[in-house]
Design a protein around this nucleic acid. Structure first.
Lengths: 193, 193
DNA sequence: CGTCTATTTGAATGTACTCAAAAGCGGTGG
DNA sequence: CCACCGCTTTTGAGTACATTCAAATAGACG
C-alpha cells in the first residue's frame, strides 16, 4: 500500500512506535491525480498537506500579466502545499498542478494538529522538515540575488538531476526566473548539451 | 531585564506557565554587541540561536568576487542565525554583523533541544516561527523571479518601513539583489522621494 | 573645517527579455 | 508509412533592464 512509503519515509528520520504507525495510517488518505489536474487553486484555502508517493507536481502563481511562476516542484517523497494558507486558513495565491499521473497521501490540518498533540515526535519531525525547507529557500534567495541565469541553471541541473528528464524546460525556466528562450540560449552554450 | 522582552514575545504567541518562564530564564543569556562586530563568521559553526532585544543585524555571504549579499536583516523581536549550520553542526557560509550597538539573548543548541523535550510547547512555538519564516522566504523567491528591481524596492519599503530609516541603501540594495547605483536611480524616479 | 562614508550622476556595456517565426518531436489517424 | 497536429525548443533581431566604472555631490561626525 502507498502508506508504507510514507511510513518508511518517516522512519528514515526517526523510528516510529507501532502506535505512531497506526496513527499515521489513520490520518492520511491516498488519492490519485491525473496529469494536468489541480489539487489547489488560487483563492481556495489549502486544507491538505500533501506527500507525493508517485508522480510530479508544480506549485505556481500568476502575476498581474497572467504569467506563471513556479515556486516549487515535488516528486516522490516530497511534500507540497501552501504552508501560509494551510496554517492561516486564508485563501491561497497558488495553484498546484500534477505534471504526471500521480499518487499522493494527504492529511487535513486538524488531523495533523492532533498528530502533533498526541505524538510529540511528529511535532519534531515536521519542525525538522520545515527547517530543511527553509534552508533550501534561503539558498535559492542567495542564488537569485547573487548569480546569473546561467549559474542558476547549472546549479539546478547539478542539484536536481532527477528533475531534468521529467520536467520541461519551460517549467524549469519559470522556476529559475528566466524566459524559456533565454534558457535555450544558455543550454546551447553549455558543454554537456 | 532584557529577558522580559523575550518572555513577552513568547507570550504573544502562547501563554507560558511559571515553570516554562523559569526555563526560558535559565536557557538564554544576554550579551551586548558593538556596532560593526560579527557574532558569526564564515567557517565557524553557528552554535547559538539569537533573539534581538535591541539593535540591528544583517546576515550576509561573500561570493567568489568578494561581494557581500545580505540574506536577512533582524531588528528588535526578530531571530537571527544560520539555521543550516545550527542544526547540522557544519561550518556556516554566513557572517552576522551588528549594524547598530545591540543587545541580544542567545541560546545554545543543547539548551534549545532540552527546552523542546522538557516543554513541548516550545517545540510548537518554534515550529510556527520556522513556518512563518519559510513563508517569508517563499514570498521573496516569488518576488525575485517575477518582479523588476523597482517593484522589489517599493514592496520592501511598504513591507518594512521600520528598516528604511535604519539601514543604508547600500545594505538594502544588497538585500534586494541590485547595485546601490541602480537603487539610487530607482529612488529618483519614485514619487515619495 | 576636514575627513570619511553614503549617495548620486552619467556613459558605456552586458545580461536578459520580447516578439515573431522556424524547427524538432512525439502521437494519432488516414 | 506518411501526413498532420499540438507542443516544446530553438533562432534571431531589436529592445529594455540593470551593471560597471569613474567621478561628483551630499551628509555625518569629530
Amino acid at each position: 500500500m502507498h502508506i508504507e512509503s510514507l511510513i518508511s519515509y518517516f522512519e528514515n528520520h526517526l523510528p516510529l512506535t507501532e502506535e505512531e504507525i497506526q496513527a499515521v495510517r489513520k490520518s492520511f488518505s491516498a488519492r490519485k491525480v491525473k496529469r494536468g489536474r489541480l489539487i489547489l487553486q488560487e483563492g481556495d484555502v489549502c486544507r491538505l498537506n500533501t506527500f507525493v508517493v508517485e508522480g510530479c507536481f508544480r506549485m505556481y502563481m500568476l502575476d498581474f500579466d497572467g504569467k506563471e511562476h513556479n515556486l516549487q516542484f515535488a516528486i516522490e517523497n516530497w511534500w507540497i502545499g501552501d504552508i501560509a494558507s494551510f496554517h492561516s486558513g486564508e485563501p491561497s495565491r497558488f495553484f498546484i498542478e500534477a505534471m504526471e499521473p500521480s499518487t499522493v497521501l494527504q492529511i487535513k490540518k486538524a488531523d495533523q494538529l492532533r498528530l502533533f498533540v498526541d505524538y510529540p515526535k511528529f511535532n519534531r519531525i515536521f519542525r525538522v522538515f520545515t527547517e530543511n525547507e527553509l534552508v533550501s529557500y534561503q539558498r535559492r534567495v542567495i542564488q537569485n540575488i547573487s548569480s546569473t541565469a546561467e549559474e542558476r541553471y547549472t546549479d539546478f541541473i547539478n542539484r536536481y538531476p532527477d528533475f531534468v528528464n521529467r520536467i520541461s524546460n519551460v517549467q524549469i525556466a519559470s522556476f529559475l526566473g528566466m524566459t524559456p528562450e533565454y534558457l535555450s540560449t544558455i543550454r546551447k552554450k553549455l558543454p554537456s548539451s
